[in-house]
Design a protein around this nucleic acid. Structure first.
Lengths: 192, 192
DNA sequence: AAGGACAGAGAACGGTCGTTCTCTCGGTGG
DNA sequence: CCACCGAGAGAACGACCGTTCTCTGTCCTT
């Protein structure tokens, strides 16, 4: 029941933000009376938390599915950006729900920003896991995470998906540089 | 007068968001009566617009100052990330005001998201200007812009400034790869 | 078949928001 | 000196929010 409610209200929250959607609209879209909503969730903030957790789960599942669709180590890292490209072009894309939530509620409240932080941390750790699995130095994963985050906000604000391809191209350069120790010695030989 | 009001309310808006700060608080912090506020600005949204424009101006001025503090071409591009590092560690840093505004008001209204979009576009164009000034291919600037955006949101949410250094390191790799055609032929020779 | 616990629907409540109105006062031209 | 215009301060207004309460009907139990 709770899951059905979360599923029904998620698109509304994603499209317009948490504060812009009132409880009455939640009642209308779920078909569940206010009384019942308040018995299932102590307050609106609890619904928001559950929605954020649901977003985290589906996002992570989709990402993992794309990454694990290939076994070629280098492709696994690049699959992150292919996943982003597909997402950006999907209908109704309006940026990362977590970043948007942080902008909306980051200045107040305490629980929502913590959830956002946790999600981003999980993403970074997953990326680090994939990167170390192919023998890359541990400096690579944070750089790729930054690229992904940048592509995400750029796509959301500009309303264009090309940032995913640009980020993918940059990721290829970073991965190749990290995996080819010859390149670093080359760069070092130029310095002095 | 308008400028003094904008200057007085900006920190409040940045720290807590636009919707979380009411007109009464603006009256208190400026010392200007509501009647006068409403004669100077037709509505709260007009104040917000002016605040956004003011942020854009000072942000751009600070960025340009840092970039133009050096004449070494490669350093000019890296100066962008040094600027970010300094900003992230400044007191009260709470992410990019434009990204936060987009998250807060992107799902509604029309004028604020347009201002955010315009600011990001200006930044990208400035970066492109600096990049082409040193003979880099035009693919480089968007990649650096994505890195900068990513470092920004990562720093805001994680509450740590290290993403600036990670992004700077990645930018070095991207710049060197873009400026050294030998590196690209090396990568190409490995592909087939 | 009757009584009671419970659920549905929405009105009501207290609070807050952006915006406007009213009242009062001070400064000024004749 | 006085009438008047305009500005300051904040109360008032209407709308809307999240939350609760009331009223009504229904189903289950004995």
């Amino acid at each position: 029941m709770r899951a059905m409610i979360v599923e029904a209200v998620s698109p509304l929250f994603y499209a317009r933000g948490f504060t812009a959607v009132g409880m009455d609209e939640l009642r209308a879209v779920t078909g569940v009376s206010l009384k019942r909503l308040y018995r299932l969730f102590p307050s609106k903030e609890d619904i928001i938390e559950e929605v954020l957790h649901s977003w985290r789960d589906t996002w992570e599942a989709n990402l993992r599915a794309q990454v694990e669709s290939t076994q070629v180590p280098r492709e696994r890292l690049l699959a992150v950006f292919d996943f982003l490209a597909g997402w950006f072009t999907s209908e109704g894309f309006r940026g990362c729900a977590f970043i948007n939530s942080f902008g909306e509620l980051g200045g107040i409240s305490g629980r929502i920003p913590a959830i956002v932080r946790a999600q981003k941390k999980e993403f970074q750790e997953y990326l680090a896991c994939v990167a170390t699995g192919i023998g890359a130095p541990e400096t690579l994963a944070p750089q790729l995470a930054i690229l992904a985050e940048g592509a995400l906000t750029t796509a959301a604000i500009a309303g264009s998906a090309e940032s995913a391809h640009q980020a993918r191209a940059a990721a290829e350069v970073l991965i190749d540089a990290a995996l080819a120790p010859a390149a670093s010695t080359l760069a070092a030989s130029r310095a002095p």
